[in-house]
């Protein structure tokens, strides 16, 4: 097991390094001189040169690269070109909001999706299966901003059950919960749609396996066959998909944060894009990569727990 963790950790480090390199070059290869972008077309050559020096843009690319990598690993992600505050600080200010939102959505999405998928598979080609399939396909098709707007219209504007703006100002626990309810539900429902479909097809696959027939042949009750023999096997592909789904979840969280006007990484990156805040963008990409790499690592470890064969590979 230790060897397995070590190998996955090594892989995570390599991925992180590769993405950091990619980020560095993407930001530099794309058109537009950051100094010019910040100062506008009218700025004099001297002012631009001065800013370029201050930003370190006049140094050789290799030096810039080394500074960037060392900085990124050491926690120094530079200062925002717009707000002049350290990128790290800006990110850390809003990170808890995004983490809270996505973590709740992740848990809810799995808690709804896995049982729904099992239920559909067990009742294959009967009413529960048809209903689950259609509902989940609609959930899968709705862009996060569409479902978000519908939730907002119904539960915040028409029914006034929840605040229209989930601004992250609430101080009480119930207040925070009320603010979190709609955005988290929005993300969770879309995720549940994915998880339901994957669980259903994985479960159907597993239920047709020889070892399920073996379990039935020895007289194990149907519910034990499903929940003990089949579910753990079916979780192996489901865990993989949940790991891959993380990218979509992060994308959807950006849209959700905009719809519900909620502080978080999403609003931060949209602001940085609009203002061409390159250092901020770099920092954002690093944090996103970190999150993705960490979750993939977690997925791999869960994988090792679910499937006894993994440790030997």
């Amino acid at each position: 097991m230790a060897g397995f963790v070590f190998r996955r950790l090594g892989f995570a480090v390599v991925t992180l390094f590769a993405v950091l390199t990619l980020v560095f070059f993407v930001v530099r290869i794309l058109p537009g001189d950051p100094a010019m972008v910040i100062l506008g077309d009218q700025a004099s050559a001297a002012t631009i040169a001065a800013l370029r020096t201050r930003l370190g843009l006049d140094l050789p690319v290799t030096t810039q690269y080394a500074r960037f990598i060392l900085g990124a690993l050491g926690g120094d992600w530079g200062t925002s070109m717009v707000t002049r505050r350290p990128v790290m600080q800006e990110v850390l200010n809003v990170l808890p909001h995004t983490l809270e939102l996505t973590a709740v959505a992740l848990v809810l999405g799995i808690a709804i999706g896995v049982p729904a998928g099992v239920w559909a598979a067990v009742n294959r080609n009967r009413i529960p299966d048809y209903v689950t399939r259609i509902v989940s396909l609609v959930g899968l098709s709705a862009p996060a901003f569409v479902s978000g707007i519908v939730l907002l219209l119904v539960f915040a504007i028409a029914l006034s059950w929840f605040p229209v703006i989930s601004g992250g100002q609430a101080t009480t626990f119930t207040g925070r919960l009320r603010e979190l309810a709609l955005p988290a539900t929005n993300l969770a429902l879309i995720m549940a749609a994915y998880v339901t479909r994957v669980t259903r097809s994985a479960m159907l696959e597993v239920l047709s396996q020889d070892y399920v027939r073996t379990a039935r042949a020895k007289g194990v009750p149907a519910r034990v066959v499903v929940w003990r023999h089949a579910l753990r096997n079916c979780l192996i592909p489901v865990v993989t998909v949940i790991g891959l789904y993380l990218g979509i979840l992060i994308g959807n969280s950006v849209l959700t944060e905009i719809v519900f006007n909620r502080p978080g990484l999403g609003k931060l990156i949209v602001g940085a894009l609009a203002q061409r805040d390159y250092t901020m963008l770099q920092g954002m990409m690093v944090i996103y990569t970190l999150i993705v790499v960490l979750v993939n690592l977690a997925t791999d470890l869960v994988y090792g727990l679910v499937d006894p064969r993994v440790q030997f590979k």
Partner: peptide
């Protein structure tokens, strides 16, 4: 495939956003 995985690891919408914003 390792290179593909690196791109795949990054949230697609964010990647799209950055590319469109820069291009």
């Amino acid at each position: 495939m390792q290179a593909m995985d690196v791109v795949l690891a990054f949230p697609a919408l964010i990647l799209g956003l950055i590319l469109v914003a820069m291009l």
